[in-house]
Design a protein around this nucleic acid. Sequence first.
DNA 1: TTATATTTGTACCGATTGGTATATAAATAC
DNA 2: GTATTTATATACCAATCGGTACAAATATAA
Lengths: 211, 211
Amino acid sequence: MAIKEKTSVPSAKTLAKPRGRPLAFDQKMALEAAMNVFWSRGYESTSMAELTEVMGINKPSIYAAFGNKEELFRQALAHYVAGPAAFVTEVKKQSTARQVVESFLQQAAAFFTNKNTPNGCLIVQAALTCGQSSSVIQQELIVYRKRFEDSFAERFEVAKAQGDLPLQVNSQQLAKYIATIHQGMSVQASSGATHEELKAIVEMALRNWPS
Amino acid sequence: MAIKEKTSVPSAKTLAKPRGRPLAFDQKMALEAAMNVFWSRGYESTSMAELTEVMGINKPSIYAAFGNKEELFRQALAHYVAGPAAFVTEVKKQSTARQVVESFLQQAAAFFTNKNTPNGCLIVQAALTCGQSSSVIQQELIVYRKRFEDSFAERFEVAKAQGDLPLQVNSQQLAKYIATIHQGMSVQASSGATHEELKAIVEMALRNWPS
DNA sequence: TTATATTTGTACCGATTGGTATATAAATAC
DNA sequence: GTATTTATATACCAATCGGTACAAATATAA
């Protein structure tokens, strides 16, 4: 019980070495790999076997690190929102509602067809239909989409207060319209639509901006 | 090898009684039941066990009558196109392109939220994401969607020739835009959107009709 | 009746599903 | 050094997957 502060001297808790055998993988990289499989295959059609291969970790280690398949999906989803899909939150900082929407849809058009990532949107496609055992995840994704609509509706209310959106506009309706275009574009992208085709769709959808 | 015409005497082939034990179920009703399960659960998440229950037929009989799961899905899909989704073809008979599209989207809004059937569109939702074993079905649904776009684009070309659509309109692009709205509405419906909400979306989408 | 044709129900097939028991390996603490 | 803690790899679990073998049941044909 002699006073030894070797490990506590660095003080930064993140530097304090843990007790047992060290992890043989990088948590973020493993999560990124899992995210990509869920993104392209959806929740239910992604098997633990495939996750094992693609994450480069065997099953017991995945369960120790992430809980179970459901929990792993939730963490992959959070990684998606904070990472590749972060522009969805960022875009609301644009100065006018029109700019917010135009920037959002154009970035989505590029994002959905990015050749380095699966096509379409994880949140839209991962559990549109599923068996009863996955209905919890299905509902959670519905909530994600609804929250997205609500946050855009809020942004439109701000725009109305700031005078860059007509007061008679129904913010919830406009947000749902934008979400519908967005979700339709996701289906199009996962069916093979090109970036140029999606850009044309965005232009058509924005031609009737309320003024 | 004697000449026997007993069975051919009634002449109407449908009245000629088949030789063995008769079928204990109605083929169309069974197909309708299968269609409804695929419609709400998607292709992969629908198990043969659930089909067995809902069709009221046991597995060997299903395989004898419909082939296998893939073939059963194809027949259920044909039943969907010819039955509940027949309005998609019918609507092209409207006299102007604008009427075609408005009627199509408004009927889709009602159809997707019909309380007697699953929400959304079978062709859009049944295999958006899936495992490798279902990629054949996934591709076939993509082809269905593409053909739908093409048929609408053809209708728009007719409209241009008839003078009810401006000549500078890109028919393929317009068709893809309509398809995108349609697919987005399907996602919305399966996420709980109401008929009224979808109607509002249709109105917004049509506000920018080319003139 | 007997023979033939077809459908039905049960009981099963190998493969795959998500999840885990267990023993070994690799690190720190003392 | 030994003890303790954590992660690894193998090998397994019951349940479910799509699909089928087989024998009993039900019809027509002769």
